[in-house]
Amino acid sequence: MEKFTNMESVVAQLDRGNVDTDAIIPKQFLKSIKRSGFGANLFDAWRFLDHGEPGIDASTRQLNPDFVLNQSRYEGASILLARKNFGCGSSREHAAWALSDYGFKAVIAPSFGDIFFNNSLKNGLLPIRLADSEVDRLFHDCEAFPGFRLKVDLEQQTVSYLDGSHVFRFDIDPFRKHCLLNGLDEIGLTLRHADAIRAYEEKHKTEQPWLFS
């Protein structure tokens, strides 16, 4: 995983609740056996007017001019502002892959689907939970001021306006933060405890031998 560095970017806003992972990356793209290339089909059914299938060249497709990500004011955004329960539904990690492949590095919302939240952290995509009132304010300002930008500082756990007028703090597990900041491979970290896992396994086997037969 790449290290997460502090960043500053234009903010794109997606003003609807319960955005599910089926919407983030529709099922026909899940047939791929790779981890990359999903950005082209992020929010496919909303971003395009025609129906997308794997293998179709995106440049030949009809963009939906009404969809936020197709509006020039949000071009190049690495921060996505969303509503409650973002990423609910299917466990498909392809949703996190698609968002980060598209160029997003952080998603701000009042709440997230649990599985999506975990998947994002494992792919260097930072899910930031802020209070409802803070998210409301961000939506308001994002709408009102074209070119609205925010700064994300993971070390300090803050989202702030460039002029410093507002600074919002967010929570993150110290362990997850450490992994993100250092771009650590979680499997490697866990395997340092291989002896503990083996010891647990032996004890578990004597207690519930039927699980191992």
Partner: peptide, 21 residues
């Protein structure tokens, strides 16, 4: 019993464990 993402599938395959809160 719960669902996991693909990185976690790999993690469970490799370590038989999951990092959880």
């Amino acid at each position: 019993a719960h669902g996991i993402g693909t990185s976690e599938v790999e993690h469970v395959l490799a370590t038989q464990c999951l990092v959880q809160k």
